[in-house]
Write a protein that binds this DNA or RNA. Sequence first.
DNA 1: ACTATCTCTACTTTGTCAGTAGAGATACAA
DNA 2: TTGTATCTCTACTGACAAAGTAGAGATAGT
Lengths: 151, 151
Amino acid sequence: MRVSAKVDYAVRAAAELASAGEGPIKGEALSKAQSIPLKFLENILGELKHAGLVRSQRGTEGGYWLARPADEIKIADVIRAVEGPLASVRGEPPETVKYQGAAEPLGKLWVAVRANLRAVLEETTIADIANGTLPAVIEEITSDPQAWTTH
Amino acid sequence: MRVSAKVDYAVRAAAELASAGEGPIKGEALSKAQSIPLKFLENILGELKHAGLVRSQRGTEGGYWLARPADEIKIADVIRAVEGPLASVRGEPPETVKYQGAAEPLGKLWVAVRANLRAVLEETTIADIANGTLPAVIEEITSDPQAWTTH
DNA sequence: ACTATCTCTACTTTGTCAGTAGAGATACAA
DNA sequence: TTGTATCTCTACTGACAAAGTAGAGATAGT
């Protein structure tokens, strides 16, 4: 799993919007708060808007805001909005790939990989990030020092 | 997580070697058994060899075989051999990225993602694939019908 | 010596990543 | 209604990776 700059930026921008509360936030303010190139950020916000996660207004009093309460926007939603499906095998959904011979059980493995990704990304919301209170599952997983090693 | 053709091929080739048992298996036989383009497969086997997972011999009686017992080769080993680290955030290891402001807890999330990937890929071996007997953890994860849906 | 196989370097083609550029639309203010 | 600040949309670029292809060279066995 490589978390791209785009996904990283998208989640950070959403968290910033969540923590800012109600009113519209200007692109430039987000750009500065999270050190994201403005034009690149605008592209990303456009995709989030198109996916219905963000709303916006132009003009002097314009800016961006979350379309839904932050605790109803999962990290998985943000990733899907800017990058498509969470997991794929050679471009196909994991459950559709067929294997022959000795590799036959491999499909099940990729399905398990996706399920474990979801266990993290579908449980955590933008509000969790903004508040710093991650779900108990995540705290448990990351409480193992092994999780923090590169090995 | 996008599973690339290269990773997919590498795991399948390794499983095929595992199920074939002792003697050297020719590249062309592997290529046909798993429908992998021969020259591409040779590149991949070269990387597996360089990583010490596979050994080989040239000549008429030549071929490839696993350097270690199949139950001592984890899927994670194969992935690392051909693609590098299991998880990264903008090219860096998850535990090294620093966030500011509202995004601060994000690092922990990426660490949890990697930990959950490892939970699958470090527990399953090439032997598990070849025998069709996946670890109990994997069976449990994939027993939930939800794991098989695209949603 | 011959042949089959692995080995190594290089090349191609296509697509994605990360970002940049600039003209156009629109909301608000004076 | 003119101006200005902001979002919006399309297009472009340069670097890199993904997926394969090509062919000459090394070596093990017959």
